Simulated scan of single mutants.
Amino acid sequence: MARNAVVFHGTGANPGVAWYPWLGRRLAERGYSVEVPHYPELNVEPIGTFLPKVLAEQRFDEETVLVGHSGGAALLLAVLEHIGVEVAQAVLVAGYATPPNESEEPVLQDAYDWAAISSHVRDLYFINSRVDPYGCDDRQGRAMFERLGGTQIVRNDGHFGDYDQPYETFELLDRLIG
C-alpha cells in the first residue's frame, strides 16, 4: 500500500504559502503521494457541514500521514474523531481545541470524543510555540496532549508561518514524519 500524506493549511491560507509546498515536495521525494487541498471555507463554514465534505474528498488508511497547521490542525481533530481507520501519524502545528482568541472558530466542535481521536492515530505530535500571536500556544498543545498522549514539542517560532512570518521550510516536520 502506498504511503499518502494530506497537509491541511491554516485559516485564510492556501496550499502555496508558508512551508506547505516545501513539505509536499520533500514527502513526494520520499515516495509519498501528497495532497495539499485548498479549503477557502476552512474556519468559515461550520464544522458540522464542512467536515463531511473533507471526509468525502480525502482518502485515509493505515499508511496515511496527516499534517495540519492552525485552523487545519483544529480540523484534524474532527477528522481523526470521525474517520473509521487508524492512520499512521498526525502532526498538529499551532493546533488548538478551544477558542485561542476572541475570533469566531467555526472549525471547532462543541465537544470532542478524545477516546475516538486517540484510537484513530498511531503516532501523534503537537508542535506549538510558547508565544503565538493568535493564542495557538503551548498551553493549547498541552491541553490536547493531556487528553490524547503522543508527543508535545514546544518551540519559540511564533505561528510557524503567517502573512508577516515567512516560514518557507520546516525541517523539524520533515524529520518527524516517518
Results as ranks from 00 to 15, higher is better:
M1E: 14
R3P: 04
N4P: 05
N4M: 03
V6G: 01
V6A: 05
F8T: 04
F8L: 13
H9N: 07
H9Y: 06
H9K: 04
H9M: 08
G10R: 00
T11Q: 11
T11E: 11
N14Q: 14
N14R: 14
V17K: 12
V17L: 13
A18T: 13
P21L: 05
P21E: 06
P21A: 07
P21Q: 08
W22H: 04
L23I: 13
L23D: 00
R25M: 03
R26D: 08
L27D: 00
L27T: 02
A28P: 00
E29I: 00
G31C: 07
Y32L: 04
S33F: 09
V36E: 03
Y39A: 10
P40S: 13
E41D: 15
L42V: 07
L42N: 03
N43W: 05
E45Y: 14
P46H: 15
G48A: 14
F50R: 11
K53A: 15
L55G: 07
L55I: 12
E57P: 05
E57C: 11
Q58C: 12
F60T: 02
E62S: 15
E62Q: 14
E62P: 02
E63V: 01
E63K: 14
T64A: 07
V65N: 03
L66D: 01
V67E: 05
G68K: 04
G68P: 05
S70M: 01
G71A: 10
G71T: 06
G72I: 04
A73H: 06
A74E: 01
L75T: 05
L76R: 00
L76S: 12
L77D: 00
L77V: 02
A78S: 15
A78P: 03
V79Q: 01
V79W: 02
H82W: 05
H82M: 06
V85G: 10
V85P: 09
A88R: 15
A90E: 03
V91M: 11
L92N: 02
V93W: 00
A94T: 06
G95T: 09
P99H: 08
P100F: 05
P100R: 05
N101C: 09
S103A: 13
S103G: 03
P106N: 11
P106C: 10
V107I: 14
A111G: 06
A111R: 15
Y112T: 09
Y112P: 04
D113F: 09
A115G: 02
A115T: 12
A115F: 01
I117L: 09
I117Q: 02
S119K: 12
V121C: 14
V121Y: 00
R122A: 15
L124I: 07
L124E: 03
Y125P: 00
F126T: 04
S129T: 09
S129H: 04
S129M: 09
R130H: 13
V131F: 13
P133I: 04
D137R: 09
Q140E: 15
G141M: 11
E146T: 11
R147S: 12
T151D: 11
T151P: 07
T151G: 09
N156R: 15
D157G: 10
G158N: 14
H159E: 08
H159M: 10
H159L: 06
G161I: 01
G161W: 00
D162R: 08
Y163D: 13
D164L: 10
D164T: 11
Q165S: 13
Q165N: 11
Y167E: 10
Y167W: 12
E168I: 06
T169D: 10
F170N: 02
L172I: 09
L172E: 15
L172A: 10
L173V: 06
L173K: 03
R175G: 06
R175M: 07
L176D: 06
